[in-house]
């Protein structure tokens, strides 16, 4: 039987990460690795893009890299 994924890519999960600290797209992708969510790479990119568009996080550059963050 397939083991249930231990990580879920949801709006609430993304929100919690971005409230905690600013993250790059790569940081976020690391939190939702395909082997942990059970999603394909394409699904991960599409779902994460939809969630970020909806959350519309603040952006700032840290070390020349764009980071997203949310305030409560």
């Amino acid at each position: 039987t397939p083991s249930s994924s231990d990580v879920q890519l949801t709006e609430e999960a993304v929100r919690r990460y971005l409230i905690r600290k600013p993250m790059t797209t790569k940081d976020l992708l690391k939190k939702f690795q395909t082997k942990r969510t059970g999603l394909s790479s394409e699904q991960t990119v599409n779902v994460l893009a939809q969630i970020l568009k909806k959350l519309n996080p603040e952006r700032k550059n840290i070390n020349d890299k764009m980071h997203f963050y949310l305030t409560e």
Binding site: K26, L29, V45, L52
Partner: peptide, 20 residues
């Protein structure tokens, strides 16, 4: 692999660029 992560990050940023 890190190159797959790079590709995914690039794809995600490309999707978001239309929006941002």
């Amino acid at each position: 692999s890190s190159s797959e992560a790079d590709e995914m990050a690039a794809a995600l940023e490309a999707e978001l660029n239309d929006f941002m």
